[in-house]
Amino acid sequence: MAKPMEQIKWQELEVGAIAVEVGNAREYETGTWRSERPVVNKDQCIKCGVCWIFCPDACIIQAAQGHFEADLTYCKGCGICARECPVGCISMVSEEEG
């Protein structure tokens, strides 16, 4: 979007409330909801992609080294990846602990 979401006035919306940009929900960063974040142990990761297919927020990305990790801009911290990982290489770390 040309402007940040909160600065758009109702007069500037399209007639019929049409969203003209595709997939611009990415402007809204759901990562701020998180209280726990997934941390991947790179050496243990077998690069299978199970976390990627089960992520409801489509926020798992493949890093250059081949392992999968969460995009913390969108990760809501649900913990599905940590639970479903077949080798258990993902652990949930509280955000408060830093």
Partner: peptide, 14 residues
């Protein structure tokens, strides 16, 4: 895409 506002762990969004 990411950035939708479903609850944490929503299997319906999945």
């Amino acid at each position: 895409t990411s950035g939708h506002r479903a609850c944490q762990g929503c299997a319906e969004a999945l």
